[in-house]
Design a protein around this nucleic acid. Structure first.
Length: 442
RNA sequence: GGGAAGAUACUCAAGCGGCCAACGAGGACAGACUGUAAAUCUGUUGGUUUUUACCUUCGCAGGUUCGAAUCCUGCUCUUCCCA
């Protein structure tokens, strides 16, 4: 049996290192992973009812793990979410109420199961757990005696996430006992998973290193005489070359859910990656092998204006997170919206394809009678459609030459008429290059 | 429990009786340039309005004043010092 797994295991750590997905790794981890099928887990915080691309890296890590022949466990923090992780925060976190939390946990489970088949039958099939399930039955006294006793406050205080909050530097606010407890609870998760399913490795973002090592320490101390060996590994936090926050785009987060971020927007986000970031991201966010990626980077450097790298990156990630069809539609929409022969391209689409392509683009309806009379541009942008939030904003956009009707720039005096309708039915508005809105005549 | 400081638009941060929709910085959005990139330069960044003007906003609630983000009183919250 052991031999069987040995044959199936792939060199995971080496690959992750090349991909730039390795920040810290505890000594012995690599040996453990090449020795036997290893169960490893990553925690997901239920701070929202869906996941955005910030969580894509841990998800991808779990998938890598599975593909390398190990057993990935996704832990949803139903219990830890009630406490709040102080890592990387300078202020005390607001607590979520039970209802919101339950909703978030369900949402995250739903998203995670798109990437990992939790119903799989294989030995190394992914597992989904919720730490609320075991934490809810533990009394405070029990916890204080069995867990709290094992770790000194001195040890806990030495963690950066805690130290920072005690130091008062950078305007950091104090820290409640609640948040202080967080690392113990997370550590207990590791112990619980070690005991119940033999989980030996915890992974996460590098901001989790402190919490994770508390876990490995706790496992060791809670199992005297067992010679328990558990490991830790983290990946770097994703950054942008220009120092901006990763994962934000015009108007907010990029989510992994179509109803929060359309596949078109999702595709566009990746397509707009800068050259420098694209080289980094393609290793992290795609499963392409080393040879393919190095070839792509070489080609890209020869002709950066073709943006081969961005296109491939966008294709791979959109296909992974959504699916092939969604990618194709997004690509088609992109190529039409940014083409030079926009008008003829768009006119050639039948209605079904048209709606398909523009699914996810904000739409509004306008009566044909109104169009017959002519609709003032300001009203068309704001009052009639709510594309922009106020007349003032619409006016500013028009004055700064940002608005286009069917890709032709217009000014304040323009008014929409039936002559602007494409196929007698639609008008396409743009604010800037990248914001598209559709008016449907009814 | 005692004392001190503070709360200003997305964030940081000026302003300390009229000239304040509120300096400045960052961010964001847009324009030019380009490759739907980066860098750079320019503009915008409470609402109604063509402009003027008006309305709402400076923790919350009252008050003083012709007039308050600016003064007074109470409340809430935060930080710091002493016990």
């Amino acid at each position: 049996m052991i031999k069987f797994y040995k044959m199936k295991l792939k060199p995971l750590v080496e690959d992750l290192r090349w991909r730039g997905m390795l920040q810290d790794i505890m000594p012995g981890t690599e040996e453990q992973l090449s020795k036997e099928m290893t169960t490893a887990y990553i925690g997901f915080d239920p701070t929202s009812d869906s996941l955005h691309i910030g969580s894509l890296v841990p998800i991808i890590l779990l998938v890598h793990l599975e593909r390398a022949g190990h057993k990935p466990v996704a832990l949803v923090g139903g219990a830890t979410g009630m406490i709040g992780d102080p890592s990387g925060k300078s202020d005390e976190r607001n607590l979520l109420d039970d209802e919101a939390l339950a909703k978030n946990v369900a949402g995250i489970k739903r998203v995670l199961s798109r990437f990992l088949d939790f119903d799989g039958k294989e030995e190394n099939a992914p597992m989904l757990v919720n730490n609320y399930d075991w934490m809810k039955n533990i009394s405070f006294i029990e916890f204080a005696r069995d867990v709290g006793k094992r770790i000194t406050v001195n040890y806990m205080m030495a963690k950066d996430s805690v130290k920072k909050r005690f130091s008062g530097e950078d305007g950091a606010a104090g820290m409640s006992f609640t948040e202080f407890t967080y690392q113990l609870i997370q550590g207990y998760d590791f112990y619980h998973l070690y005991k119940t399913i033999g989980c030996k490795l915890q992974m996460g973002g590098s901001d989790q290193w402190g919490n994770i090592t508390t876990g490995t320490e706790l496992v060791r101390r809670m199992t005297p005489g067992e010679d328990a060996k558990v490991y830790a590994m983290t990946c770097p936090l994703i950054t942008k070359a220009d120092g901006g926050k990763f994962g934000k785009s015009e108007g907010g987060n990029i989510w992994l859910d179509t109803d929060k971020t359309s596949a078109y927007k999702f595709y566009q986000f990746w397509l707009n990656t800068s050259d420098e970031d694209a080289k980094k991201y393609i290793k992290i966010f795609t499963f392409l092998d080393r040879e393919t990626i190095e070839e792509l980077i070489k080609k890209h450097e020869e002709a950066p204006h073709l943006r081969l790298l961005q296109k491939k990156l966008a294709e791979e990630v959109t296909t992974f997170v959504h699916n092939k069809e969604a990618f194709e539609v997004a690509q088609k929409a992109s190529s039409i919206l940014f083409s030079d022969s926009f008008k003829s391209d768009i006119a050639s689409l039948d209605e079904e394809t048209f709606l398909d392509v523009f699914e996810g683009v904000p739409q509004a309806e306008l009566k044909k009678e109104e169009l017959a009379k002519g609709v003032d541009m300001i009203a068309a942008l704001a009052a009639k459609t709510n594309f922009l939030s106020s007349n003032g904003e619409a006016r500013r956009a028009l004055q700064s030459n940002a608005v286009a009707v069917n890709k032709e720039k217009v000014n304040e005096n323009y008014s929409l008429t039936e002559a602007d309708l494409i196929n007698g039915k639609y008008i396409i508005l743009n604010k800037g290059k990248k914001n598209t809105y559709i008016i449907k005549a009814i």
